[in-house]
Design a protein around this nucleic acid. Structure first.
Lengths: 227, 227
DNA sequence: CGAAACTTTGATCTCTGTCAAGATTAGTGG
DNA sequence: CCACTAATCTTGACAGAGATCAAAGTTTCG
């Protein structure tokens, strides 16, 4: 589960950059491993390195002084963990389970990107996708009931896994209830209750480390919404 | 109030692009005017044009099928209304009061940007800023009480106006209560009540078309938060 | 001046959060 | 392999912030 040995530079480039660009990117990439719960970087730090995810799942989050936490995204292989040209990290990142990343020295990566129109274009497209994702999440947080939030989260997560080739009938949920709660602006008890309610309604089946989506697409909760 | 005659291409470029790039950008820019409430583009449309804001305030929002609305941002002069290289608009935009925009033919703008490292860089930086703003907003929507949301919204809005040179002691609020509510994931009644409560606490003064921020920085609501 | 749009204020209800207790799972060492 | 402990998850009872419904006040603009 998530053991697919993606390699970040290739995954990020897709078919869109030259062999030279890819090999330059690979030359800069230092493979690093993090264990479950380990912090990869923290909000506010100067971004000496950039990170691209090769294997595993990472949660990106902001902490408020009073201890509240907002998970801003879960990252899958092939994505940068943060915008590579930003001077500082706008959020913290830690590993959910074991994780492989490619670490890039920021200045060198910056030079490489700025010297390559292809890479710049890829980065702009990446940023555009991430922005749209964040805006969709805004819409969900601002408008959704607990049930909508959980249901839409599950469908979105399943869709992302499907795209990233880690396609399996039971959808793995490697993150904790608390992570989901902090992502959706809910409390973990509410997430738990809502999952139970959705199972009651026969739209999902709860499994040990995942979930089975049965009638979720048809459920009015997620129809016609562009989250 | 917001009558400053900014010109989008110059504002966007700042000092960071050559005279040639700026003149090319200006050559492509068609000045267009929209009156209050008019729609500039709608979510899902193919993006034939890109828009940069020269004067006024624009609200960017997503509509759900059941009529609920999420305002994802208010735009000030110098910003693109959407990511210029995206194929489709991920949200709708309409004018709050009178607005001047520069309209660019998408294909030509795309070619210009892709041919200019400076512009690409500016675009990446723009996207990075917008992403961080969206993530901060996520954090606010996910964690904030009504009072925090309103207070932080006011401070952020004031700070943005200050940066964009439209600096005035009474902070103008050109948007409607409903817009603020849809931005913060609240109901307009709650916004109204909360503003009254903040005035009660002597941290703001409500004015006809704006607000005066008095003790808001010191109020514990907004201390030490990185929204 | 008068109608329409917007804002404020009030009374009540509901959903989610809070607090608390159990149940289940995972991890550890004998 | 099993006992034991800690972590995670589920479930229940209650409370409170914000939503909803309703009405009155204010501003805007023809």
């Amino acid at each position: 589960m998530f053991r697919t040995p993606t390699f970040f530079p290739s995954a990020f480039c897709g078919g869109s950059c030259t062999r030279h660009e890819l090999s330059e990117l690979t030359r800069l990439a230092a493979p690093v491993r993090f264990g479950g719960g380990q912090t990869i970087f923290s909000e506010g730090e100067r971004a000496e390195s950039s990170f691209g995810l090769s294997r595993g799942v990472v949660r990106l989050y902001k902490l408020l002084p009073d201890g509240r936490r907002q998970v801003v995204a879960f990252t899958l292989p092939g994505d940068f963990l943060a915008m590579p040209l930003a001077n500082r990290f706008n959020f913290s990142a830690d590993a959910i389970g074991d994780v492989n990343v490619s670490r890039f020295p920021r200045e060198k990566l910056k030079r490489l990107i700025l010297s390559s129109p292809n890479l710049q274009r890829l980065l702009i497209d990446f940023a555009t996708r991430e922005m749209h994702t964040a805006q969709n999440q805004l819409s969900l947080l601002g408008n959704g009931s607990a049930e909508e939030k959980v249901a839409i989260f599950l469908v979105n997560w399943r869709n992302r896994l499907a795209r990233s080739a880690t396609n399996s009938q039971p959808v793995p949920l490697p993150m904790r209830r608390q992570d989901i709660a902090d992502f959706l602006g809910l409390k973990l008890e509410t997430v738990s209750r809502t999952l139970a309610k959705l199972e009651e309604k026969d739209v999902i089946r709860l499994l040990p480390k995942g979930v089975l989506l049965t009638g979720l697409e048809r459920a009015s909760l997620v129809t016609g919404r562009s989250y």
